[in-house]
Design a protein around this nucleic acid. Sequence first.
DNA 1: TTCGTTATTGCAGTTTTTTGCAATAAGGTA
DNA 2: TACCTTATTGCAAAAAACTGCAATAACGAA
Lengths: 143, 143
Amino acid sequence: MTHHLLDYATRIREQGFRLTPQRQLILDAICEGDQHVTFEEICRRVQAKSSAINQATVYRTLEFLSKLHLVTTAEISGDKVYEIATETPHHHLVCRSCGAVESLADSFLSELSARLRQEYHFKTELSHLVITGVCAKCGGDNG
Amino acid sequence: MTHHLLDYATRIREQGFRLTPQRQLILDAICEGDQHVTFEEICRRVQAKSSAINQATVYRTLEFLSKLHLVTTAEISGDKVYEIATETPHHHLVCRSCGAVESLADSFLSELSARLRQEYHFKTELSHLVITGVCAKCGGDNG
DNA sequence: TTCGTTATTGCAGTTTTTTGCAATAAGGTA
DNA sequence: TACCTTATTGCAAAAAACTGCAATAACGAA
Ligand SMILES: [Mn+2]
Ligand SMILES: [Mn+2]
Ligand SMILES: [Zn+2]
Ligand SMILES: [Zn+2]
């Protein structure tokens, strides 16, 4: 279990929203997945537990959870994926050649953030950035 | 005119593909737009010149031009936008609060790139990155 | 615990995006 | 120039994503 139901309940309710069984199931479905989960996977998991949840609800819930920053999303090699948002954000290196997805600590972007703040007075909110390129293994060729 | 037809013709043909009137019109449509153009805008412009171009063709062409790196794309505040790819890439700062879109020189990312290459042997191919945050104007509040 | 307000869901479209396939035409070759 | 190969288009149908609205149910207040 990657998420703590109580926290979520609180964070949802203190904004005037409601914690429904559908939302719980969808949160669970995202947690159970291996890091990044697609819409189809979420639907599959949700329906396995409670068959009668409408897809429209899943679409709306994912958008809702994203807006509340309880879930983070990204497009990785053409697929839109979802993931439970953790305390400290992380990012990814994605290889254009072999598709490998590596994680990158948020600290890697702090210099960039600092500079943007200094030079542009722009306060970055970098969460779940996807950086494409060619990984070590795919190295010299194919580039 | 932001693009040079001859260059495009060459770059398309030397990969074994064909330069069709549809592709020319779509390239023109993207050029005529003000930097970032949406799918609807492209369709509107294209159809103004030659009414009978199928939307499926526009979808397929945009994907085609992206793959050839003749066109670059990004999702800015929920809208997918297209733009002619230039010699040197650029990126954007997008304000979550007021929606302002500012351009960012590629050089801002060279330190990050260098570090990823050193520490991960990962060769970044950063083109048209979108960095969200809060702009100078929107500053302290709303954050 | 009961009630009332209103956020949320399910349903049934509607719109957007993708896809298969036959017809067309780009562009290399003779 | 005429012809051939096959990349590309248009069409129609399918799949995916989004919406409006009436019915439902979460949850704070009494
Ligand atoms: Mn992730
Ligand atoms: Mn741009
Ligand atoms: Zn790789
Ligand atoms: Zn702003």
